[in-house]
Computed example of a mutant assay.
Amino acid sequence: MSREELIKDTVEKLRHLSDSRIQEVSDYVSFLASKIDDKIITEGIKTLASTSKSYEFLQNEEELYQVSDIKEKYQ
């Protein structure tokens, strides 16, 4: 079934539902859309963070501590 046919079929089924059921379907569709928006935003943030040069200075930072500095090792 194509996308357009599926949409038409869904709309036809919605016509037979009560107002309260249509509201439930609308709320669920809004929920699904917000999940997609959240995923797009999260991926965008990951991309920005991975390509950002904000923390580039940390790559050239000298090591402050050595293994020999450890007084007690976790077991």
Score class of each variant (00 low, 15 high):
12 E>G: 11
14 L>S: 06
15 R>H: 09
17 L>H: 03
18 S>R: 08
18 S>A: 08
18 S>Y: 11
19 D>F: 07
21 R>S: 07
22 I>V: 12
23 Q>G: 11
23 Q>W: 12
24 E>Q: 03
26 S>F: 12
27 D>N: 14
27 D>T: 14
28 Y>N: 09
29 V>T: 07
29 V>Y: 01
29 V>C: 01
29 V>D: 00
30 S>A: 14
32 L>W: 08
33 A>N: 11
33 A>S: 11
34 S>W: 14
34 S>N: 15
35 K>P: 00
36 I>M: 03
37 D>E: 14
37 D>I: 14
37 D>L: 12
38 D>G: 07
39 K>Q: 13
39 K>R: 15
40 I>W: 03
40 I>A: 08
41 I>T: 07
41 I>N: 09
41 I>K: 09
43 E>I: 05
43 E>C: 03
43 E>L: 13
45 I>F: 01
46 K>N: 12
46 K>H: 06
47 T>P: 00
49 A>Y: 02
49 A>L: 06
49 A>F: 04
49 A>D: 02
49 A>P: 00
50 S>V: 02
50 S>K: 02
51 T>L: 04
52 S>I: 00
52 S>V: 00
52 S>M: 01
52 S>C: 00
53 K>I: 06
55 Y>T: 03
55 Y>K: 01
56 E>S: 11
56 E>I: 04
56 E>K: 07
57 F>I: 11
59 Q>C: 02
59 Q>Y: 06
60 N>K: 10
61 E>T: 07
62 E>D: 10
63 E>I: 12
63 E>G: 02
65 Y>R: 13
66 Q>R: 08
66 Q>K: 05
67 V>G: 04
67 V>R: 15
